[in-house]
Design a binder for these strands. Structure first.
Length: 301
DNA sequence: AGCGGTCAAGTTGAT
DNA sequence: ATCAACTTGACCGCT
């Protein structure tokens, strides 16, 4: 049985997440900043609850939470703690309600920190800021009961072996709140499954297998074998990603995502697995419902 | 109310 | 050298 996942936002549903810009906020004094952020974050906490309700009502068992749900949380000048907000208690309560709802209705949630979150960089400042970002997402994950914080390997910096060593060492030094949720995903230009699986095995970090990225950046190992290896890295329900290229696999940029999933792109060997598959498609909830409908056709007999 | 330039952060590869 | 892509368009000043 596949648990289908929706990523971050909606195409048609009137559920939106607000954001803030640093340029705008930095023109205000601190208490005005916190008041502005307070309203915005309350809105986002309520939107998350609505998103989880939509998922449950539509048979969608997984929702990826946008990293910007607490905008500028770790910004060097504008950053804040939830407790700094005028209604901090209420904000926390609303996120906890999301956590209760997702537990009661079995809607899995997770985070995917953005491209600036790197545990392989040679720059100590980049690593430190990344760990800050991961700590923030772990704190929020605690409130909302999210069990995954998924990142990529990052850059190669001209020497992939050294970068992988830094990645490994940084993972091993992470606090447990982060490490217990952290996962590694293959990307489409630097780190293939073959690069990351050894790190996952050594650290006990689960491997998020993105089959689209694997097709963009192959490593000589087939989808079936990689699926099996990925499954073994998980101590809970495995999480995989699927998407289709915008133009075609042979076009100039197959990395761009299409609106919907082209059914042949879904690996046959996944069909009978007990896994979560997050659908990375521009049509969002419409794409998830579309792909689900292909698997829910009434069976003969 | 609607338009459009702009938005914290790192790294890569296409142009 | 610039720029889009990456999990995602949304924000906000201007008219």
């Amino acid at each position: 049985m596949i648990r289908w996942g929706l990523c971050c936002i909606f195409k048609e549903q009137p559920i939106t997440f607000r954001r803030a810009t640093a340029a705008f906020l930095s023109k205000k004094n601190r208490s005005e900043q916190l008041r502005y952020l307070n309203g915005l974050v309350l809105h986002n906490a309520e939107a998350l609850y609505a998103a989880l309700c939509f998922c449950k009502d539509n048979g969608i068992g997984d929702f990826r939470i946008n990293s910007q749900i607490l905008p500028l949380k770790t910004h060097p000048e504008l950053g804040y703690a939830i407790g700094d907000l005028p209604d901090g208690q209420l904000v926390e309560e609303k996120f906890r309600m999301c956590g209760t709802y997702s537990r009661d209705h079995d809607v899995r949630t997770g985070f995917h920190p953005d491209q600036f979150t790197l545990l392989s960089s040679p720059r100590a400042d980049v690593t430190a800021k990344s760990i800050d970002e991961l700590a923030y997402q772990a704190e929020l994950a605690d409130l909302v009961n999210a069990d995954v914080i998924n990142i990529h390997g990052g850059g190669a910096y001209g020497d992939k072996a050294s970068a992988l060593e830094r990645l490994l060492r940084n993972i091993e030094n992470l606090p447990d709140a982060i490490r217990s949720r952290l996962t590694l995903e293959n990307d489409d230009r630097v780190y293939s499954p073959g690069d990351l699986l050894p790190v996952c095995l050594e650290t006990g970090i689960p491997f998020v297998y993105d089959v689209h990225h694997h097709r963009c950046l192959p490593d000589g190992v087939g989808i079936e074998e990689t699926t099996e290896l990925a499954m073994k890295t998980w101590n809970r329900e495995p999480l995989f990603h699927v998407s289709s290229p915008l133009a075609s696999w042979h076009g100039k940029n197959p990395r761009n995502h299409a609106d919907y999933i082209d059914l042949p792109d879904f690996p046959e060997c996944w069909i009978h697995l007990t896994i979560t598959v997050e659908v990375e498609a521009k049509a969002k909830e419409l794409a998830v419902k579309d792909v689900m409908s292909h698997f829910l056709k009434p069976r003969i007999i």
